[in-house]
Write a protein that binds this DNA or RNA. Structure first.
Lengths: 190, 190
DNA sequence: CACCCGTCTTGACAGTGTCAAGTTATATCG
DNA sequence: CGATATAACTTGACACTGTCAAGACGGGTG
C-alpha cells in the first residue's frame, strides 16, 4: 500500500495529515516535512501537489468551507431558525477545529484561489439565509450581525477567552446569546 | 545611540520592531532575526529579553490588550453607549491591526503570562461595561453577545470576508449591525 | 581601581520551505 | 508485446529559521 512509488491518492492523504497536524499544534507550527513523513512520502512530495505550504493550507481551508456550508445548510433545512444555524457554526468550530483555525487566516493561504473563494461564498450564503434576505443595496445589516455574532462567539470560544460556564456547554450559551439579540426569530416565526 | 553596546531600552525597541514586522507580513511570518536586525542588534538579543519568540509576541499582545482597554474605556466614558464601544473595538482592529492579529492567537503566545491575562481581563471588562452588568450566576448573555458581535465583525473585516460596501466605512456598517441587534442603543438613541 | 553582573555578541546546531535535477512507475502508441 | 512519453515522486542542496552555550563588553558598586 504505502510503500508503492505511486501513492494512489497522495493529495487526499496529505490533506488528512495536514488537518491532523494542525489539530495537534496549530497552523503556524505546521511543518510540510512532518506532514510528508506522516503520509509516508519524501519531504518534497507536498510541493508537487500543492505548490507550496500555503497551497496545502488553501486546500484544507477550501475543504473546511465546503464542510461548513454543508453543516449550515443542513441546520437551516432542519430548523429554519437562525439561532440553530449559529449554534451549528459554533459546533463546527469546536468539532472541526483544525479546519476552522485555517479558514479565516488569509496570510496562511492563497486567498485568491478560486476553489477557496467558491467554498467560502457558499458558507457565507448559507449563514445569510438564516438571517433575512439581502436587499439589493449596500449590505444587509442583519446578515452581517448574524455572521459576526456566530463567528465572534466561535473565535473567542476556541481562543479560550470565555469563562468556564460557557465552555461547559457552548451551544446552550450561544442559544442564550442568540435570544439576547433577537436576531433570527422575529421575522421568520410562524 | 544605536551603536552602543548597551542599547538603553532594547526591550521597547524590539516590541516596536515586532509590531512593525507583524504589520508588514503577519504574525506567522515574523522572524526574530529580522526583528533584531530592525532594532540594530544581534540575532540572539531578543531571546535575552523575552526568552523565546512566543515571549516577544506575548509582550506585544499584552501591550495590545492594554491599549484596547484604554480605547474602550474612553469610548464608554464619552458616549455611554454600547454601539459606540463596539465601533471603537472595530476601529482598534483596523488602526492597530498588528496588535489585533496577535492578541487572540493563544498558540503564538504564552497564554498563561500574568501580564497578558491581566491586560486581557481589563479589556473584556471594559467591553462588558457597555452591555449591562454581570448577573452573579453563570454568565451574562448580553455581555457575551456584545463581545462576540464586535469581535466577530472585526475579525471578519480584517480577514477580508466582508463586501466592499462594508470595507468602505466599517464603523458605519457596525453601527447598523449594532442597531439590528438592539444590544445597547435602545435607550440612548437620539 | 577592581570586581561583579546584567547586557549583548558570536558561533554552532538541528530543523524549515523551496528549488533543480534525477529516478521510477504508469499510460499511450507502434 | 516492447518502446517511449509523461506524470509522480525522490534526492540533494540552498538559504533561512529559533534556540542554546560560551564569550566579550561595560556600567554600577565596593
Amino acid at each position: 500500500m504505502t510503500d508503492r512509488y505511486h501513492h494512489g491518492d497522495l493529495r487526499r492523504a496529505l490533506i488528512d495529515a495536514a488537518v491532523e497536524a494542525v489539530g495537534e499544534a496549530g497552523p503556524s507550527a505546521l511543518s510540510l516535512r512532518a506532514v510528508a513523513k506522516k503520509a509516508g512520502v519524501s519531504h518534497a512530495a507536498p510541493a508537487h501537489h500543492f505548490g507550496d505550504k500555503a497551497g496545502l493550507l488553501t486546500a484544507v481551508a477550501a475543504e473546511g468551507f465546503g464542510r461548513l456550508a454543508d453543516t449550515l445548510e443542513a441546520a437551516w433545512d432542519a430548523t429554519g431558525d437562525f439561532t440553530a444555524v449559529g449554534a451549528a457554526y459554533v459546533r463546527f468550530a469546536i468539532d472541526r477545529r483544525p479546519y476552522f483555525e485555517v479558514m479565516f487566516r488569509p496570510e496562511l493561504v492563497h486567498a485568491d484561489d478560486p476553489d477557496l473563494q467558491r467554498a467560502a461564498s457558499r458558507s457565507a450564503a448559507a449563514l445569510h439565509r438564516g438571517s433575512g434576505e439581502s436587499d439589493g443595496g449596500e449590505f444587509n445589516a442583519a446578515a452581517l450581525a448574524a455572521w459576526s455574532l456566530a463567528h465572534g462567539f466561535a473565535e473567542l470560544l476556541v481562543a479560550g477567552n470565555f469563562p468556564q460556564a460557557v465552555k461547559n456547554d457552548p451551544e446552550a450559551a450561544f442559544r442564550a446569546v442568540g435570544r439576547a439579540t433577537g436576531l433570527g426569530s422575529d421575522h421568520s416565526s410562524g
